[in-house]
Design a protein around this nucleic acid. Structure first.
Lengths: 232, 232
DNA sequence: GTCTATATACGGATAGAC
DNA sequence: GTCTATCCGTATATAGAC
């Protein structure tokens, strides 16, 4: 499966995401007309990610956001109760989507090699679609409060655990060489994250997302795969 | 060479660093008594890194810093002219040290395989010694001004280029398989950076720096090394 | 639902005493 | 060389008009 196909099959358009956010935050959102709310939520999140990813969430003032989103200060506060609440909504929603898509894609496969490939490919493709969110999430984790910070760490470990489980399965199947699954999963995750953390670099070099996913897959398999094992 | 040996041979104690900062910023530092200046610079940088790495440089107020460093607001400003200037001094100094040590260590070797191992090991060991700085530098790059931001990017690319050059040399020598040197260098760098970016994870798991360096070296060599090539 | 105007607090930076 | 006290801009958040 290449990126174009992945994008067609998956449903995470801006509209889908806003609809989810809207229905999950009905209580705190004072705007009740769905059409208006969806339109403005989209503008708010886009603007917040754009400004934050340029100069940091803390450095983004509500006036900045208000200007970029085309809404007044007062209107903004009809959609969230405080700047911190906005941060948490963004983080929560992205995490939920990531986990849902990753699980579904990995467990659609059965063999360990196929699952490993699916995990690598899906993470990279998803972070391509939602690059601003992935970057934001990584850089702003430490600005979260106690409670939300724990959830963010749990989410980071969840992704890693998906890979650990695949590696263990592969070791048991004889498909992978004996290896330290946890350490291997850590460095694999680091490679996946580089795609959205250094996006400026890859864009400048015209490295395509398919090219990157392919490269990482080959790199990882050179270490993990048992030499003689037949890949189905 | 293991971490203990590396640490003994290299001279980057807090005192060394402060002395360098002091002599390079004589103009802007109003405190002239060296002993006093070194002591306070040490406290200021330690505190600034500690607070910033917990909640971000922007979120750190000068009052926070003043309290943590045990100096009054007025006294702080005898050591730097503005909060932004403080940020730039920290970034500049760390970059200079990193480049110096990395160059020296890599070019002390001759063969491509030895150089690749030296680059991996040195980067990981150095980021272990200066972990707070490396983390800070990574997370706060986007808060720099235009001018300093360019230098930070140049520095990021410098490290990568060191690895690219080694990989090309190895390809020419026949030690490495044909590979995309630039892409390979990118993902290798990502693995090196994970050591200081996810330090909390590795500390919790009691992964030692020697263990990590060894693992990354093996992982990279599984992909890069030509199967039959004799490593000296 | 959205706006403008404003309350209130906190930020960086400095003046001037010691 | 360091401190305390203070200036002044800007931040978040809200009240109340439309």
């Amino acid at each position: 499966m290449d990126y174009a196909e992945f994008k067609r099959e998956i449903h995470v358009s801006k509209d889908d995401i806003c609809r989810e956010i809207f229905s999950e935050n009905r209580k705190s959102i004072r705007v009740k007309k769905e059409m208006t709310a969806l339109k403005n939520l989209g503008r708010i999140f886009d603007s917040a990610l754009r400004i934050s990813n340029k100069k940091g969430f803390q450095a983004m003032s509500m006036r900045d956001l208000s200007k970029e989103a085309g809404l007044s200060m007062g209107a903004l506060y009809a959609y969230f109760s405080s700047k911190e609440a906005l941060l948490e909504i963004i983080q929560r929603q992205g995490r939920a989507i990531t986990q849902r898509i990753l699980k579904k894609s990995v467990y659609a496969e059965n063999g360990s090699v196929a699952r490993l490939r699916a995990a690598i490919r899906t993470h990279i493709y998803l972070s391509e679609i939602m690059q601003p969110w992935f970057y934001f999430s990584y850089m702003e984790t430490k600005n979260l409060g106690e409670e939300e910070s724990k959830k963010a760490i749990a989410s980071e470990l969840f992704t890693e655990q998906v890979i650990v489980d695949i590696l263990r399965q592969g070791r048991d199947e004889g498909a992978f060489v004996p290896l330290d699954s946890q350490l291997a999963a850590s460095v694999i995750k680091a490679m996946l994250q580089d795609w959205y953390l250094k996006r400026w670099k890859y864009t400048k070099r015209k490295t395509s997302v398919d090219q990157y996913a392919r490269f990482v897959t080959d790199f990882v398999e050179a270490y993990c795969l048992s030499p003689g094992f037949a890949v189905s």
